[in-house]
Design a protein around this nucleic acid. Structure first.
Lengths: 212, 212
DNA sequence: CTATGATTTAATCACCTGATTAAATTCTTG
DNA sequence: CAAGAATTTAATCAGGTGATTAAATCATAG
C-alpha cells in the first residue's frame, strides 16, 4: 500500500463551491440518505473529508445547499414584489413561472423538506414560504378585493389554496407527466399553462367588468 | 448471557398483518431509509426476522404496504366510476375527498414514491395513477365536452392539470397549513374546499347555462 | 402422543455510512 | 526563502444497517 498524501498539483481550490453544486444536483432526485458523502465528494472531484472541513457534516452541506437555492428564490420573489409584477393575475402566474425556471429544483426540494424533513431546515423553509409565496398571494387578493374585483363570497384562504395548487402542483407532476405522456415543460407549454391558469382564476373568481 | 429462544406463549399469530400496519404507519412521515427493520418489527411487536420470512426483505414489506394502500384507493375509485359519482363537477370533487379520507396516507406516499422512488414500486404506481385519476378526469371532460358544456378553447390536458392540482395539492399542504395557521382538515373545511373548487371550475371552464 | 411443517426467536454477519484523524501539501506573506 | 496558516489527503473508526442463520417453539394431522 503506497502512501501518497497531500493535494496533487494544479487543482482548483474551490472545493466548497463544487460541493454545493454537487449537493444541488445529487439531493434533487434522490432521498437524503441515498446520497453518501463519498458520492457527493466524488461528483465534486474532492475528498470527502472536505465536507466536514467546510460544512461540519453532511447535514451542514445539505442545509447550506437548501439555503442557497431558497435564498435565490426568495430574493427573486422579493425584488418582483416591489416592482408590482404580481399585481395582475397573469403577472402573478408569469412571475412565478419565471422564478421557478431559474431555480427549477426548488419546488421538489421544498416539498421533500417540508414533507419529510426531520428538522434539517424544515422550520426555516416554512418561515420563508410563509413570508413569500403565501404573503404574495394574500397581497394579490387584497389588491383586487379592495378594488371590488373579486366575486362576493370568495374565501381568501381558499383563494390562496387555489393559487398555490395551480402554481406548485404542475412542477410536482413534471416527471410523472413526462413519463406517462411525454409532456415537455418548454416555453410553449409554460405559456399555455400561464394563459390557462389566468383564464381559470379570472373567470372563476373575478367579476366580469374587464379582465386585465 | 442467557439463551432463551422460541416464541413466548399466548402471542398473536398474525405477524404479517402487524408488519403491514406498522409499515403503513412508519413509512408515512419518515424517509424510507430512516425507518429500520428493527423499528418496524418493534412497533409491530414482532421479531425483525419476520420481515424476511413474510416479505423477503424490507423493500418487499414496503412494496406490499404500497400495494395494499393503492389497492384500496384504486378499488374505491373504480367502484365509484361505475356508479357515475364523478359525472358532475361537485360529484368529482366530493368523491375524491371521500376516497382520500378513507386512505389519507395515499397522496403523500404516492408523491414520495413517484418523486424519489428508485424503482421500488414507482412504475406500478404510475400505471395505476394513469388508469384511475387521470382517466377519471379525462372521462369527466369528455362527458361535459360532448354535451357542449365546456367553454371553447379549453385544453383538455390543461383541464386535467387543473383538476389534479386542485384535488391533490391541498393534501400535500396539509401539514404545512396546520403549522403556519392551524388549519384543520375537518369535515367543515373539506366541505368548503369542495364548494370552492366546484365554483372555480364551473365558472372558469363551463358555459353559463345552468350549473348542476 | 408424536412427527411434521410452519412460525418465531436470539444471535451473528458482512457491509456501508458519516465522522474523524494525523500527516502531507499548498498558499500566504513578511 | 522561511514560517505559519489554510487546505487537502489517505486511512481508520465506531456504529448502525439489512440480511441471514440455526435452533427453539408452536400448531396440527394421524
Amino acid at each position: 500500500m503506497l502512501n501518497k498524501k497531500g493535494r496533487p498539483q494544479g487543482e482548483k481550490p474551490d472545493a466548497r463551491e463544487a460541493l454545493i453544486k454537487a449537493a444541488r444536483y445529487k439531493f434533487l432526485n434522490k432521498a437524503y440518505d441515498k446520497v453518501s458523502i463519498r458520492e457527493l465528494a466524488q461528483y465534486a472531484g474532492v475528498n470527502s473529508a472536505m465536507i466536514k472541513y467546510y460544512f461540519e457534516s453532511k447535514e451542514g452541506l445539505y442545509r447550506a445547499m437548501i439555503m442557497e437555492v431558497t435564498g435565490q428564490v426568495i430574493g427573486n420573489i422579493k425584488s418582483r414584489l416591489q416592482s408590482g409584477d404580481f399585481m395582475s393575475v397573469e403577472g402573478f402566474f408569469r412571475s412565478f413561472v419565471d422564478v421557478i425556471k431559474q431555480s427549477p429544483e426548488f419546488p421538489l426540494l421544498m416539498l421533500k423538506e417540508v414533507m419529510l424533513g426531520q428538522g434539517v431546515s424544515r422550520q426555516y423553509l416554512i418561515e420563508q414560504l410563509s413570508q413569500t409565496h403565501v404573503k404574495v398571494i394574500d397581497q394579490v387578493f387584497e389588491h383586487f378585493h379592495a378594488k371590488g374585483r373579486i366575486k362576493a363570497g370568495v374565501d381568501p384562504k381558499m383563494f390562496r389554496m387555489s393559487l398555490m395548487s395551480l402554481t406548485l402542483n404542475p412542477w410536482y407532476m413534471r416527471e410523472l407527466l413526462g413519463i406517462i405522456e411525454g409532456v415537455d415543460y418548454d416555453d410553449a407549454f409554460l405559456e399555455r399553462l400561464i394563459a390557462h391558469n389566468t383564464l381559470l382564476i379570472e373567470q372563476g373568481f373575478f367579476v366580469g367588468e374587464d379582465h386585465e
